[in-house]
Every structure is written in structure tokens, then in C-alpha cells.
Design a protein around this nucleic acid. Sequence first.
DNA 1: TTGTAGTTTCAGTATGTTTTGAATACATTT
DNA 2: AAATGTATTCAAAACATACTGAAACTACAA
Lengths: 180, 180
Amino acid sequence: MSDFQEIQDKITLHWGEMGNKWGINKTMAQVHALLFISEDPLSAEQIMGELQISRGNVSMSLRELINWGVVYKMHVKGERKEYFTTEKDAWQFFKIISRERKKREIDPTIAVLRDVISDLEAANEPESVYARQQIDSLLELVEIGDNLYDVIENLNSANLTRLVKQVLEFSQRRKTRAEG
Amino acid sequence: MSDFQEIQDKITLHWGEMGNKWGINKTMAQVHALLFISEDPLSAEQIMGELQISRGNVSMSLRELINWGVVYKMHVKGERKEYFTTEKDAWQFFKIISRERKKREIDPTIAVLRDVISDLEAANEPESVYARQQIDSLLELVEIGDNLYDVIENLNSANLTRLVKQVLEFSQRRKTRAEG
DNA sequence: TTGTAGTTTCAGTATGTTTTGAATACATTT
DNA sequence: AAATGTATTCAAAACATACTGAAACTACAA
């Protein structure tokens, strides 16, 4: 067991925990981490061995990661085995995670809020006025999130740096203005 | 059972599900929703009744929401009961959620990545070079998230609108430039 | 056609999280 | 200080989710 092997174990283990905190299945996160830091593609067998998880679990996790578009199947010529590799660009990976979160968090929330608003409109009772106002302001915010997701989707890595710079400068300007 | 009562039930029910998707405990989300759309403060008893949940659960959920700083205890004069109300401003609420997510997601991820990087540096093995490079680029991104959280924290509702406008304009400019 | 690799399904199990409800503690009134 | 109303705590139960291991299946290269 080399030094690197130990570090690799540490990375996949911890990344599993992190995935959990980010609402991503632990094994999926581990499989992804393993592929992300491995220069060469790995077979399902190898993943099983490295992470000490069952065949079925590897298969399921890979399928879901492939669905997300973050892992690719590769045929290595002269080999019968299939090999798997991952999107190696961190920004691309982040964009995919954002998309999944938008699907899971933002889209259904907008749907629910709009639905509720139309109910409140229909009811037209005195009590509903205040509720309506509160829900409206929530929806407004979630829709901002929705728009910002579109920005991320259309942003490449170089422009990300520029945009972040602009945002930080904006924030700095407001802060000094408030202080001055 | 009034129309409004039914809508209220629908709101709290659905908001519980949404909370779940956002990584917030279902009951906490329901309690928050109820207080958020109620113009007047409510007692623990009322919350129990409205949401049909146990005394203990109400107490736990309120405590956690109070810890987050999103719910306040109120003493109503002439009443022995304690009453509870919520931060009514959606943007303020969103900022609090962001803070909690940063604590749960970003901070520990940065810690893990930095830790792993120092291990990889120490190991100094040939295999670790690629892994190092990959982890570096992840850390870079998560640190951007960290900085953006600070921006949110220091942003008031009026400036939010301005900032979002700037960001959308930036995105639009890049898009037309790419197309043109 | 055989053997290898991967996939799918599923019952059983393990693990983690949430909720309950009874006991306890606290606070206020009489 | 007793009685009453209210809030908190926590062990146990309920619930939800993830994982395993085995079996049956698909695909395909040799």
C-alpha cells in the first residue's frame, strides 16, 4: 500500500461525506472523486476494488453519473472491458452540479409557489392578502436564482473569472460607499 | 374549514417537501412557512394544531429556527404563553439560508480540500501530480463560492436588484459577442 | 458457443434521520 | 407551596434511504 493509495482513499472517503452534505449520494460522489483524480479511465472492476463497494452499487452509481453527463463510457481498443472516465474540467463539473440542483430545488419550488399564488388569487379572502404578499416576495427571489442559473449555464471558465471580479468590485464599491 | 385554511395546509405541506429538497428538515420548513404567511405571532399550541405535529417536534423545530435567527420568541402582554414570529423579509430569510448552507457545504469542503492538498504535497509521488492539479482546480471554484457568499452577506435588497441587473447584462453582452 | 464484463432487480440488512409521547423542568398564579 | 399552564428533553419507535449479495439477464469478442 503506497502513500498515494492512502491519500486516494482519504480523498474518496472525504469526498463521499462532502457529496452527502451537498445532497449527492455518497457512493456517487466517491466514484466521481476516484475518476476525477485518476489520469486514466478505470473499469467497473477497478472501481469496485478501490472503493470496496458492491458490483450493483458501482453499476447504479455509474449509470446515474452518466445520466448527469459527468461520466463517460470509453472503449479501449483491444480490450473487452469497458472503461469509465469523468469530465476533467472542474468548472464544467460545477455547471452540471448546478443544473441538477436547479432541477431538484429551484424548478419545483417555482412550480409550487405559482400554484399557491393562483389558489390565493382564486380564494380572494381577506386573510389571503398578507399570505399572497409574502409568497410573491419569495417567488421573486427564487426566480432570480433561476435567472442566475441561466447565466452560469452560458458562462465559460474565462468569463467566470471576469464576472466574479465584477461582482466583487460591485460589492466593494457599495461597502465603501456605505462606510464613507 | 375555510378556503383559506385549505390553502394554508397546502402551503405548509408543500413547503415541507421543498424544504426537504433544499436540505432543510421538513417540519422546520413547515413551521417556518406557517409563521411566514401568518400576519400575527402564533403560540406553540397553535402550531401543533395547524400542522398536526407533536409538542416535542414543535419545540425542537422552533429552537433550531431560533438558532438560525429566522424565528423570534415574543411575549404578548397579559398572556402566559410564548408567541413566535418569523423574519418577514424574504431577502433576509434567504441570506440566513445561504449562511447555513455555506456552513454546511462550503466551509467543510474547503477544509477537506486544503487538508488533502497538504497531504499530496507531502507525499510528493509521481501519481500525486495529476491528482493535485485536479484538487487545486476544485478548491479554486469552491473558494469563489466562499467569496460570493460574502457578497450576499453584505448585500441589501435594493443593491441585490442592481447587482442582478449587472450580472444579467454581463451575460447578455458575452452571449451576443459570441454570436456576432 | 463460450467466457467475460457489465446491468438490472430485489429481498434483506444496515444506517441515518425524524417524530412521537411521556417524563421532567420551569414559570406563574392563587 | 400547591396547582396549573407551558416548554423542554430524550429514549424509543417509525420512517426513509442506501448498500449488499445473489440471481437472472444482455452484449459482445474470441
